[in-house]
């Protein structure tokens, strides 16, 4: 037998392969939350609620559903990332102990982390791409440049995922995940300009929104969809989101090592 130690990139790919093997048997369970839920949101909020909204200055002159769609792309990415970066990672440490199984092979804790993050990024890409397709079919997105919103949405999703995965690696109990959802994810999706312009919120709330990856993601996605994105602000948003990803990876490496190399 030709056994050898894989390089770091190949090792992460092998870890992704492990996730994919599992997913092929269990993908049905994710269809509803990953693909259907965002579409239902688009229908209820964009079409249903949107019917009550006059297109005007607040919606950038667009019908409400068109105004909403690119933002929902980012929100979809973050919503999909929540479960994968909390419960799924926690379970792999604690309940299934699948990470412990992987690190008893030549694969290192850091490579387990890379594999997990890569896997989540692929899932987010699939979720947002499908959503984009459906939004186009429903006429909520007409601009071809909206395709570029997918990578931005994934980046925003990963800027949330990476630090949360690192946090999850430090948890012994799953109690805090509900709190993350309610106090981080919910406000982050509702108050960062996705459903209504930030100008309708009190000024003191604005800096809080600027810290969140969702706000940066929405700025990028909406900007690229409507062709209003300028290079300098775009670079700023991308740099901020990337910094969050890097921060998450650095912390995650440390915590994965601490938890798995014992």
């Amino acid at each position: 037998m030709n056994v050898h130690v894989l390089g770091p990139f190949r090792a992460a790919l092998v870890a992704v392969e492990g996730h994919w093997t599992w997913y092929r048997r269990n993908w049905r369970a994710t269809v509803i939350s990953n693909f259907l839920q965002p579409v239902l949101f688009l229908l209820a909020m964009g079409v249903g609620f949107g019917s009550q909204v006059q297109a005007g200055e607040a919606t950038g002159g667009h019908p409400y559903v068109v105004f909403l769609a690119p933002a929902l792309l980012v929100i979809t990415a973050v919503q999909n990332a929540v479960f994968e970066s909390t419960w799924a990672v926690f379970s792999a440490f604690k309940w299934q102990r699948s990470y412990q199984g992987v690190v008893s092979t030549p694969i290192t804790p850091a490579q387990v982390l890379y594999g997990q993050l890569l896997w989540i990024a692929l899932r987010l890409a699939a979720g947002t791409a499908v959503f984009l397709g459906i939004a186009v079919a429903l006429g909520a997105i007409t601009n071809p440049s909206a395709v570029l919103a997918v990578p931005f949405a994934v980046l925003a999703g990963m800027a949330f995922t990476a630090p949360v995965v690192a946090f999850t690696a430090t948890r012994e109990k799953p109690d805090s995940f509900n709190v993350i959802f309610r106090f981080l994810v919910m406000p982050m999706t509702l108050f960062t300009g996705g459903f209504f312009p930030m100008s309708q919120l009190p000024d003191w709330l604005h800096p809080l929104a600027w810290v969140t990856p969702v706000w940066h993601g929405i700025e990028l996605a909406r900007g690229v969809t409507f062709g209003t994105l300028r290079l300098l602000p775009a670079a700023g948003h991308v740099a901020y989101l990337s910094a969050l990803v890097v921060l998450g990876i650095v912390l995650g490496r440390r915590y994965f090592h601490r938890r798995l190399a014992v």
């Binding site: 609620f49 109690d175 309610r182 919910m186 406000p187 108050f191 459903f195 209504f196 919120l201």
Partner: peptide, 23 residues
């Protein structure tokens, strides 16, 4: 976790009532 359950509808109310509401 129990207390946080109260905030979910509250966030929705603030967002819908006073954000969407102005649309």
């Amino acid at each position: 976790s129990v207390i946080s359950g109260f905030f979910e509808p509250l966030f929705f109310l603030l967002s819908l009532g006073f954000g969407f509401g102005q649309l």
